[in-house]
Nucleic acid binder design. Structure first.
Lengths: 238, 238
DNA sequence: CGTCATTTTGAATCGTATCAACTATCGTGG
DNA sequence: CCACGATAGTTGATACGATTCAAAATGACG
């Protein structure tokens, strides 16, 4: 596992964007019902650039394992992380001939990439894509609410709830003292850019949650949620 | 009785920022090659509710003519308009069995609705859907940047630029004094909820633009942009 | 153990929200 | 057509939350 991480930290940053076919061997013919699409597996190190906004969008990607963020930059340097993606999620979609955002891994990540034109010709793939994309749209809607209408503390609470598996809160009414330990694998800056805040504000929100005893920070990017329902109530959603 | 079919505002209601809009024409009884899908035309008055968040999502909709907004509510009443849609745009998508947002018309609107299950079985429709949805995702990304990173004035400027057809600004460098008159067909409250602001702040932004001579307010929802490039520069995007 | 980067904390500032008039616009009926 | 009330929009004063700038603390790593 460790050895894979090293694989291509340097060059991917340099040759921004769409990764050409390297020596990388594992090409898997994805057998999709009646039609086959060539899927190409590529491994990326942590914090590696997959593509840049503006690069020609002739391939689309699916996360197999790991995490990816999509972000956009304003000319003066302001950044907004627009999506966080995990296993199964598809990215690199665009209705223009170039990507509308940049993609960077958060952890060592394995993705499969497909030729765009091939995808668009495959009905089975389109059906799959369709389902994926609909859940992404829902997530984007939810995120718009967060960015447009929630306070800093609500944003951070909502952010943490993303990582709580299966949303334990509403189902286990009996036990209030539920906890969960989660690994963020994002820097404060990345979190801030995702939540539309500054690092300082994110930090203060974490401190506030800790002060209230709702979370403990085990390590910098590892949070123990002592009281899932407590966080849940702070999201503004319930 | 409401007489329908009025003017359409600004063409590309739901398009992403800098997009040459070549619209898919509002085709109707969708004759897509080998498969036909029953499309059902429905007319809605202005400010009519198409569906509510949580309603069973067994149909999807396409705007033929008019304008629709999608919004989400927080339990305490805060509202965020998550999408603005115009002719050609599709809505009512969801990965859950129920709608993730509510849909309301902004103007008298003609829509076609399709049975969800039928759509998902039609490869041709899926292909079309796919294109639509990708442009919506781009718009949502753009909107996340607006909500997360732009100032009030930048938001309002960006909002106005949506209505400027074909994005005159960058192409016509020669003529600086370009103008355009646009019909918003949204109340201040709706604009505020779209931009993640309050009505007062939106109002102040409009006043500021007027003070600078960049726009004139002909009527409450009719804005004359005296200097398109001026607005464009204020969006933060260029 | 010391250096560097990241995070946290503090104090001051700024921008937007809030609250409270005031004004303009729209629709209705006299 | 005008008066009228109702609704929507504007403007001003103040409050509050997030940002900014600065510095200290913590963690990562050789």
């Amino acid at each position: 596992m460790k050895q894979l991480i090293e694989e291509r930290q340097g060059e991917s940053a340099a040759r921004c964007g769409h990764t050409p076919v390297l020596h990388a061997p594992p090409v898997l013919p994805v057998h999709e019902g009646d039609c086959e699409i060539e899927g190409q597996r590529v491994r990326f190190a942590q914090h590696a650039l997959v593509f840049l906004e503006g690069d020609p969008a002739d391939r689309i990607f699916q996360v197999v394992d790991g995490a990816v963020m999509l972000y956009k930059l304003l000319p003066d340097g302001r950044r907004q992380v627009v999506e966080l993606l995990g296993p199964g999620d598809i990215f690199g979609l665009s209705f223009k001939p170039s990507f509308d955002s940049s993609a960077e891994t958060l952890t060592p990540t394995l993705v499969t990439s497909f030729e765009r034109t091939a995808v668009e010709r495959s009905p089975n793939f389109l059906a799959r894509l369709n389902r994926c994309v609909q859940s992404q749209i829902c997530a984007l809607h939810e995120h718009a609410v967060l960015l447009g209408r929630k306070s800093a503390l609500e944003r951070v609470a909502s952010f943490l709830m993303r990582f709580v598996p299966l949303h334990i809160c509403p189902t286990h009414h009996g036990r209030e003292q539920l906890f969960a330990t989660i690994r963020l694998s994002m820097t404060r800056q990345e979190i801030a850019d995702y939540l539309g805040l500054t690092i300082e504000t994110v930090s203060r929100a974490f401190s506030e949650l800790r002060r209230r005893g709702i979370v403990s920070l085990e390590r910098q990017d590892e949070v123990k949620i002592n009281h899932v329902c407590g966080i849940c109530r702070l999201t503004g959603t319930h």
